[in-house]
């Protein structure tokens, strides 16, 4: 539905002594699932905010505009604790009929929770609601800011399945930022490695493994191991030279 082109020359936060993002260029075809992997503090969240249009103060251009429908899933579920699940969903998509809400909740494995308050749900369940919220607006672009961090492996795996099921209907161009390479390999079609701040792309890696994948799949483990042994500098955040395209 929507191709994404990112061409950032630099981004410096007001008053900061150095750039957070350096020269950062990449594109994603419509419906692609791209993961951006880099060390903590590499400016990944800053990048997502720029792409989402939340931070116009940067040097460069991104193709997503004010009229792109953007779904955003944060590190924390960020549901409004005073609204029940249905009203939380209606916050982003008003006039949503009950039937659609119930169907959506059933799809993410939470049937019958429409009138529960978020604080009554477990952390994993709240994340399911947050994922559903992002898909209810039928996003052309889906931005995921480490939404599966700090979950145990089985919970994370089950959320990967929920994400895949939701994506199958809408097929948004998807951008996941994470510092967890296993997660990136389990979910994405392509992994971009970025350096420590100021972030630059240091490796563009295509993941050609069959789906669905999970964190502890042998194929994922093997790809993880190969990448780490071939590019030991990657997650140390040491900037290599130019991005080199590569296939497995």
């Amino acid at each position: 539905m929507s191709r994404l082109d990112v061409a950032i020359r630099a981004k410096r936060h007001a008053g900061a002594p150095a750039d957070t993002l350096g020269e950062l260029q990449f594109s994603a075809e419509s419906g692609d699932f791209l993961a951006i992997v880099g060390p903590s503090g590499a400016g990944k969240t800053t990048l997502l905010k720029i792409i989402a249009g939340l931070d116009p103060a940067f040097d460069g251009a991104v193709s997503a505009g004010r009229d792109t429908r953007v779904g955003f899933v944060f590190q924390e579920p960020r549901l409004l604790p005073w609204l029940d699940v249905a009203d939380n969903l209606r916050l982003v998509q008003p006039d949503l009929p009950d039937a659609l809400i119930d169907a959506g909740l059933a799809k993410v494995g939470l049937p019958g929770t429409a009138h529960q308050l978020p604080l009554r749900l477990s952390g994993g369940m709240q994340r399911r609601v947050a994922l559903l919220r992002a898909f209810l607006i039928k996003p052309e672009l889906l931005l995921l800011d480490e939404p599966f961090i700090s979950l145990d492996a089985p919970t994370a795996d089950s959320l990967y399945d929920v994400l895949a099921a939701l994506r199958a209907d809408v097929m948004p161009t998807t951008l996941l930022v994470t510092h967890d390479l296993r997660e990136a390999l389990a979910l994405a079609d392509r992994v971009l490695f970025v350096s420590k701040s100021p972030a630059r792309v240091i490796l563009d890696h295509r993941v050609a493994l069959p789906k669905p994948r999970h964190r502890d799949d042998d194929a994922v483990s093997q790809a993880h191991h190969e990448l780490m042994s071939r590019h030991p500098e990657l997650l140390g955040g040491l900037a290599a030279a130019c991005p080199k395209p590569e296939a497995v």
Partner: peptide, 23 residues
């Protein structure tokens, strides 16, 4: 963080006030 949810999903100002700020 909650205000940002309103911003990302382009929730109308009046709804942000009623649903996010006032509570």
């Amino acid at each position: 963080q909650l205000l940002q949810v309103g911003e990302v999903y382009r929730v109308p100002r009046i709804t942000v006030l009623r649903r996010i700020v006032l509570p």
